[in-house]
């Protein structure tokens, strides 16, 4: 996506000073009620249509997932899982996969290009593609394995939560198109309340462990799921139980950077101080330098015995 001036920016990759942020925005969120999804993929198509994405025609490998994985042309993907959550029970769980728009985004933390990833004040995490350098650090930073690099232009892509639509007061394309009302969009508060109602309904239908997926490890997300089995998110095509930014990424992008730059600067400074304290180390010229007689050599030998 391009930068949207009508949306203020809360966080900007590789930037230490605050971004413009005078406008007040409420936090928004998308709620995906997995229990209502019928796997029609209308949202997947709407996403392609709105964002003008046309991937190459894939191959049928005998499952409904199509294509097999997220890619630069597929920012949202229906994941189909056939599971047996309890003895003698069978369920077909369908999860709309894509960027979760974390409140603490690992991609943004990892990105080295200033402003290539931004987080708007409403919570949407967006890639500003023209600033992307194609290093793939965002892929390493993401706890959900979402961003994908395009081989054609070496830039990373993922769901924008239709920031361009949201900026002008529309809801994301997938929300508009969903025929069952499984996907809803609004303020994060409203979406949480909506989830409470849905969970109560699911509880009454025998799903005792129904719940909201809004993982606190990443500060909560701006795409949330209502899950029938919230105690076992892994059932839903490996949705992580407790996603958080990997400690390796946190360490690398946290304390390491200022310490490393400080260490380099200190060492250079220490060298300079040593120089101005002790001066250059000059080997004095001997008067008899050109001669190679034995006397001189003997003198020489004795000189480095302590």
């Amino acid at each position: 996506m391009a930068s949207m001036q009508s949306l203020d920016i809360k966080n900007r990759s590789a930037t230490s000073l605050p971004s413009p942020s005078v406008r007040s925005h409420t936090e928004l969120a998308k709620l995906i009620d997995v229990s209502k999804c019928i796997g029609c993929k209308a949202c997947q198509v709407a996403c392609m249509e709105w964002n003008d994405l046309r991937g190459p025609v894939g191959e049928n490998t005998g499952v409904y997932d199509n294509p097999q994985d997220l890619n630069e042309h597929t920012w949202t993907l229906m994941r189909f899982s056939e599971v047996e959550p309890d003895d003698f029970s069978f369920e077909w769980l369908i999860r709309k996969d894509g960027c979760m728009h974390c409140d603490d985004p690992g991609c943004l933390k990892a990105c080295p290009a200033p402003g290539a990833i931004v987080q708007y004040a409403n919570g949407i995490v967006d890639f500003i593609s023209e600033k992307c350098i194609g290093c793939g650090y965002c892929i390493a930073g993401c706890p959900f394995d979402i961003p994908r690099l395009s081989r054609a232009d070496n830039r990373a892509y993922k769901c924008t939560l239709c920031s361009d639509r949201v900026a002008v007061g529309l809801e994301p394309a997938c929300v508009t198109t969903c025929p069952t009302g499984c996907i809803t969009f609004g303020t994060k508060e409203d979406m949480k309340q909506q989830a409470v109602l849905r969970i109560a309904d699911l509880n009454s239908r025998g799903y005792d462990n129904a719940g909201l997926y809004d993982p606190p490890g990443v500060g909560g997300t701006h795409v949330m799921y209502v899950l029938q089995h919230a105690d076992r998110p892994g059932l839903y095509h490996g949705l992580p139980e407790d996603p958080r930014i990997s400690p390796m990424v946190g360490f690398w992008q946290g304390i390491t950077k200022p310490l490393a730059i400080g260490a380099l600067a200190l060492l250079a400074m220490a060298s300079f101080l040593h120089f101005i304290k002790h001066g250059p180390n000059v080997a004095e010229e001997d008067d008899d330098a050109p001669s190679r007689d034995k006397t001189r050599d003997r003198k020489e030998e004795s000189s480095h015995v302590e």
Binding site: T15, S16, P112, A113, P114, I133, C135, K257, A260, I261
Partner: peptide, 11 residues
């Protein structure tokens, strides 16, 4: 240049 934002200008 990629390691620290303050040195990105090296790019």
């Amino acid at each position: 240049a990629l390691f620290h934002p303050s040195l990105y200008w090296l790019t």
